[in-house]
């Protein structure tokens, strides 16, 4: 009975909607954070075999520009979560590529476990791990290089923008803590 009771939810509601300035700053931050990565990607990496942008950056943008105070959005989580997950993703593909479904599930699950264990939980990390497996030939040929470019480099750029933009806003402060 308790099992079903739990499905009803305990609290009354979620947090209130944020103010307009918060919405505006989220938009500005995300726009400025994704711009350099997307720009470099489309101008310089278009005709190469390299990749400069991955989908999980969009997810990170939600956190580091839209939920600045969240523990999940702090530098330790952003950087640690992505790097660890990228590594796990590549490793998982290399070990289990004959069984793509297994490699994908194993990558994400292990990434979450590892992020938890290291105190670097960052939801987009799950996507980073998954992309290493299901991202196609272009990603696969990168091998462990995937951890450095695009992942680490992209994350570094986004972090830099977050530091600048979030601290320009009157009501924002970033990070809450570094490590």
């Amino acid at each position: 009975m308790l099992f079903f009771q739990k499905m009803k939810g305990g609290g009354k509601r979620g947090p209130s909607r944020v103010g307009y300035s918060e919405i505006a700053w989220s938009w500005i931050g995300a726009f400025l954070g994704i711009t350099p990565i997307a720009f470099i990607s489309s101008c310089f990496f278009h005709n190469t075999d390299l990749v400069f942008i991955v989908g999980s950056f969009g997810a990170s943008a939600v956190l580091i520009y839209g939920a600045v105070r969240s523990p999940l959005a702090q530098p330790r989580n952003l950087v640690g979560g992505h790097i660890l997950s990228a590594f796990i993703g590549v490793l998982s593909y290399k070990l289990f590529y004959p069984f793509p479904w297994f490699a994908a599930a194993f990558a994400v699950a292990t990434a979450i476990a590892l992020m938890h264990a290291t105190g670097t939980l960052h939801p987009p990390g799950g996507a980073t791990a998954l992309i290493a497996v299901i991202g196609g030939e272009k990603i696969h040929v990168l091998g462990f290089m995937y951890v450095l470019v695009p992942v680490t480099l992209g994350v570094a750029i986004m972090l830099l923008v977050a530091l600048v933009v979030n601290n320009l806003a009157k009501n924002r402060r970033y990070p809450e803590y570094w490590y």
């Binding site: 609290g11 947090p15 209130s16 944020v18 103010g19 300035s21 105070r69």
Partner: peptide, 15 residues
């Protein structure tokens, strides 16, 4: 809930 509304920014926690 009211107290959370007073704190600017998105608080990643339920009331």
């Amino acid at each position: 809930y009211e107290a959370m509304k007073k704190i600017p920014g998105y608080l990643d926690i339920t009331p």
